[in-house]
Design a protein around this nucleic acid. Sequence first.
DNA 1: AACAAATACATGTATATACACATAATAAAA
DNA 2: TTTTATTATGTGTATATACATGTATTTGTT
Lengths: 152, 152
Amino acid sequence: MKLEQAIQSVNFKNETHKAGLNILYTAWWLKTLMSKELKSFGLTHEQYNVLRILKGKSPEEMCVKDIACRMIEKSSNVPRIIDRLVIKKLVRRSNDANDKRHTVMSLTEAGLNILSLSTQKINHVFEKTILMNEASAAELNNLLELIRENES
Amino acid sequence: MKLEQAIQSVNFKNETHKAGLNILYTAWWLKTLMSKELKSFGLTHEQYNVLRILKGKSPEEMCVKDIACRMIEKSSNVPRIIDRLVIKKLVRRSNDANDKRHTVMSLTEAGLNILSLSTQKINHVFEKTILMNEASAAELNNLLELIRENES
DNA sequence: AACAAATACATGTATATACACATAATAAAA
DNA sequence: TTTTATTATGTGTATATACATGTATTTGTT
């Protein structure tokens, strides 16, 4: 769907302005698709993101800061997302003996299982719902990284 | 900045998978830039979006539904965003005489003024911070609309 | 006209975002 | 070594998101 239809507007100053809104809209669209899949596991988008990050270092433990800097949305409140994962027994939380300021997290068996199942669903979104070949995707990646070149 | 640096990950299944995460991260990055500008006006990103939509039809009035279908993030709770704009006297809310189910909104003078000033700041973000020429932006728009071709 | 269905909006709840601030622990400096 | 600064995390608040449900109003059907 064209952006013009999606947000019922035609008043873009130029292509760059339209691209900005297009990125925001596409992100919302993608997040909605993913959340729909995650719902059957009782996971939110950000909870899934934390599980995925923990898996990356598994079975190593990770502290809050290391998780936070890997989040897609940097302003996420990681301690509270973890609170909910701990309640659901998907994540284990304990204190670091070396540095008592640290709290360290790791996946439980249940966390590993639910991550594995939900990742299948997420991969399905990327493989089947997103209509894009590898060359186009590579080009898109270049353009997005070009946009952020002046990352402040 | 490369996505790999931004989220400290290199485990992308393929370019399409990376593109998905890249869109989500770029949207967060852009939203953060815009919110930083809006903060000096006491506006949130979504409040700004509602003001912008109302301006599009101004001086005509708009009902909640018409605003909602123009929002970038469709799951926004428009009545409550308007609550806050009414408290700040940027938006006027009244009942529609023809259909009493409708609530109709329009910008106040203060709303028009703050929108005009904040839009200057937002345009500045697009013109000066986003590093992209018109041809690249047009290509990016094509790719984003290609990704959403299977819009469900 | 009376009833059922649809529409528009408001409201409630759990979670997340964005950001400020508090607290405890460690590192650095005097 | 005492003081100061920094770091890591937790907590608080206002707003937003995602979604379910309630309520008034209008429309369609008989």
